[in-house]
Write a protein that binds this DNA or RNA. Structure first.
Lengths: 267, 267
DNA sequence: TTGCTCCTCACGTCACGTGAGGTGGC
DNA sequence: TTGCTCCTCACGTCACGTGAGGTGGC
């Protein structure tokens, strides 16, 4: 039994000594982690060396990220039990550090609005579209589409965006996107939409010819139906003109026009 | 205005798509972070592509450790504002990682019971005492004393422990500690205590002679009064015998005997 | 019909923070 | 007397988790 001799610290002094807040000390009392000291005549808690030592040890464990519910048990642990627990705690710390490092990468890519939840390659692709003078509206439609694709097929998105990007080496693709941009502003009965539909059907035709009726990529490019439907809904929802354009394309014998995978000829 | 066309996902499907829990989605609605979608005839929420995209973006920020209260503002932010915020978020992440790395070090040293809140050098010192066959009780008194010292003078403790450790090169110091250990078990009136007091007084005498009345270290070795008083209380509280030994030493002309700093000759 | 999802309260979690209202110590 | 510390409730924080009790969809 340690005697009550020695300096008796107030809760504020004990807390300052151990480097914790007064409220934290009271909390440790409340949950039974730290024994309540005796009170003085005024009802103030008075701490002796033993209490302060226990408080320092509690803090050492708590600061290391050990939940208070485990601190109690570790304070009483043997060297072997403690060593085992320490291994586990260190594993947790390492995992947490790895998690944060990952987030640092994610955050770095998030430096631009486009980068929110998108890989750098997609953000670069969107910048390429911008460099062609395409409207913010167009960029947003593309970005949202690729967000959905990235969420449903995170492993494939980088390959797909590379293919998509390469297609912009052809000046007629760039030209088509500019027309598509204008088309989004049209009324559904604007004759310009027929012009764009013709241009797109022509592109599809040449695309199939170039690959001898054997376009690269499977007809199902790896996206589930839900995602494809959401992509369509997103693109079509932009304006009634887009909906009309889809109809005009079907009249010309083409369907399944979306951001990934080849179009399909209606047979 | 995006149309309500496209596949309408249930809350469970939308949550799974974005990689969050159903409860999290409801929570985002509750705090106004994510707009409530329309309901179907049964009162079920039905999500369209726009909702899912917003959900993915919320998740991207939240997972990076951004508090939800800031997520709302960042979703609407410009590229410049976002870049600024990202710098800050990354600073926070780096600080957090550094904090965890520190804790990994602390935890590594905590692998043994002695290491709880004590630097490795002190734990090594305690092991040295153990190798001399000193009792667990003695080790505990020493450990608690050094815990108090480490808490009040963390920068100096390594130097002090090195001095203390070096003193054990002298066989008579080791011999004295063994006697001190036995003395702790004594009744206060045991004549063995007088023997130990004589031995300690002799050690002090030779210590002063060796340094020509000019012992190293200031009379006040850098510890505040509170700590010194707690150290005394801790050591004296162990047993009445220790208290008696202190008295016997005073009779022999010595005071201020504790773990750090030189003893003082009563003038 | 069974099992799964959906709904809305509403309390629980974790480690304290933060007043609210009052008293003691220098 | 003033300002600071101490006391005990007790609600607030943060981002949901977890039943409780009930209904809808395949």
């Amino acid at each position: 039994m340690a005697s009550a001799r020695g300096p008796l610290l107030t809760i504020g002094q004990a807390a300052a000594y151990a480097g914790v807040t007064v409220r934290a000390v009271r909390h440790y009392h409340q949950i039974g982690l730290l024994a309540e000291p005796d009170r003085d005549a005024s009802g103030y808690r008075r701490y002796n060396a033993g209490h302060v030592i226990e408080l320092i040890r509690i803090r050492a464990l708590a600061e290391a990220g050990v939940p208070l519910s485990r601190v109690a048990e570790l304070l009483k642990a043997s060297d072997e039990d403690l060593a085992e627990a320490v291994t586990e705690i260190d594993d947790n710390l390492q995992a947490e550090i790895a998690r944060l490092e990952e987030h640092r990468h994610a955050v770095a890519q998030l430096a631009t609005v486009d980068g929110l939840a998108l890989p750098q390659e997609v953000a670069d692709y969107l910048d390429l579209l911008r460099s062609f003078g395409l409207s913010d509206r167009m960029i947003r439609v593309e970005r949202d589409g690729w967000l959905l694709i990235a969420a449903s097929a995170p492993d494939a998105v980088v390959d797909w965006i590379a293919e998509k990007r390469a297609s912009f080496d052809q000046p007629e693709i760039v030209d088509f996107y500019r027309n598509l941009d204008k088309a989004m502003e049209c009324e559904p009965d604007d004759p310009f939409l027929e012009e764009v539909a013709d241009q797109l059907a022509d592109l599809f035709e040449r695309y199939y010819e170039a690959f001898n009726q054997e376009p690269p990529g499977a007809p199902e490019p790896g996206l589930d139906e839900t995602t494809v439907a959401m992509l369509d809904a997103g693109a079509m929802g932009v304006s009634p003109a887009m909906h009309r354009l889809e109809q005009l394309l079907q009249e010309r014998g083409w369907t399944n026009w979306n951001d990934v995978g080849p179009p399909q000829r209606i047979t």
